[in-house]
Design a protein around this nucleic acid. Structure first.
Length: 325
DNA sequence: TGGCGAATAT
DNA sequence: GATATTCGCC
């Protein structure tokens, strides 16, 4: 239990998907409605994940609007046809984008893992929806999504505590499958006693490429968290931690400015079009380097979008990583 | 105000 | 049951 620091970090890094694995997938969490609203033709998944246990999604073929193309061409052809026409007029009428309902987010074990990682890095005490969301840097993921999940997770933790300290019976099969899929960091269960004096909240790669302010916010939060933690205060806490700054910025800006209601980052519609980088980003796999480079705190995710019409028209969004552990 | 968390709704 | 939405509070 000594080399924990570097050890777990190394392992953690190991789990990250490799470039190849990320390659095939592309766009991220944009609901069909949203995509429609913005005239975005998402370069949808080529479904590179044959191995995903996944859900029993029935074979409902994707809507015509989402044909997939090779990521290479994705932005050339699948782009946002500026054509559409009616973002601000015609059928749409008002502000569909704001009114449209997002599909239900499905928390896959992988997505949940990312969530747990984020919470672990922040420390339970400092883990709040917004920050968690930022650390996870899964675009399209909203604060509400996280808040809701967090609420439930806390309940789960509470139950766990009760069990571990009180009765013996454990294992709640069906119910907690999701949560059980990701190990609960020890200190989660004992907010009181802190792990002697080490790990958790690793000093991320000190890399210092240019980082944007947005991330600084996250970093600041992290730093604050660190500062708030007594056991981190000691001599150990130095410049290192602060370096955590480049949190979620893989290749090119990754953050979305949370709009008023924390919605997703909308490709600015300002001029009828939006920044291509919006789509471009994440399309490029983060290099999973072993060298000091950066990647987001947690792996990289892509998303699988499925419309389950059979469900009575319910659309479900499934985020999934390109690989599980 | 924005954001959190608990309660409540779907 | 899982997720979303609402609502009171800070």
């Amino acid at each position: 239990m000594r080399e924990d620091d570097s050890d777990w970090f190394a392992r953690w890094e190991e789990e990250l998907p490799s470039p190849e694995e990320l390659m095939p997938l592309s766009q991220s969490l944009i609901s069909p409605d949203l995509a429609l609203a913005f005239d975005i033709r998402s370069p949808v998944h080529g479904n590179g994940n044959s191995g995903q246990p996944h859900h029993h999604h029935q074979s409902t073929p994707p809507t015509p609007s989402q044909l997939q193309l090779p990521s290479s061409q994705a932005n050339s052809s699948a782009e946002f046809a500026a054509d559409s026409a009616d973002l601000g007029s015609g059928a749409a009428g008002d502000e569909p984008a704001r009114t449209l309902k997002r599909p239900r987010l499905v928390w896959t074990p992988q997505l949940h893992k990312r969530f747990v990682d984020a919470v672990a890095h922040l420390g339970i005490k400092n883990a709040v929806p917004k920050t968690i969301m930022q650390l996870m840097s899964v675009d399209g993921l909203t604060r509400e999504n996280v808040a809701s999940h967090l609420q439930k997770y806390r309940l789960y933790l509470k139950r766990m505590q009760g069990l571990s300290s009180g009765g013996g019976a454990g294992s709640d099969p069906a119910t907690d499958r999701l949560f059980a899929s990701s190990p609960v960091p020890a200190h989660f269960l004992h907010p009181n006693r802190v792990p002697s004096s080490d790990h958790f909240m690793p000093s991320f790669v000190p890399i210092a490429t240019l980082q944007q302010q947005q991330q600084m916010a996250a970093a600041a939060a992290a730093a604050a968290a660190a500062a708030a933690n007594p056991h981190l205060q000691p001599p150990q806490f130095h410049h290192r931690q602060i370096a955590a700054a480049h949190f979620g910025s893989p290749t090119n800006g990754q953050f979305n400015s949370p709009t008023s209601n924390g919605q997703f980052n909308s490709p600015t519609t300002t001029n009828g079009k939006f920044d291509p980088s919006f789509l471009a980003r994440q399309t490029q796999p983060l290099h999973r380097m072993s060298t000091p480079s950066l990647h987001s705190p947690v792996g990289n995710y892509s998303e699988d979008l499925e419309s389950a019409n059979a469900n009575g028209g319910r659309t479900v969004l499934t985020l999934f990583p390109t690989r599980d552990d």
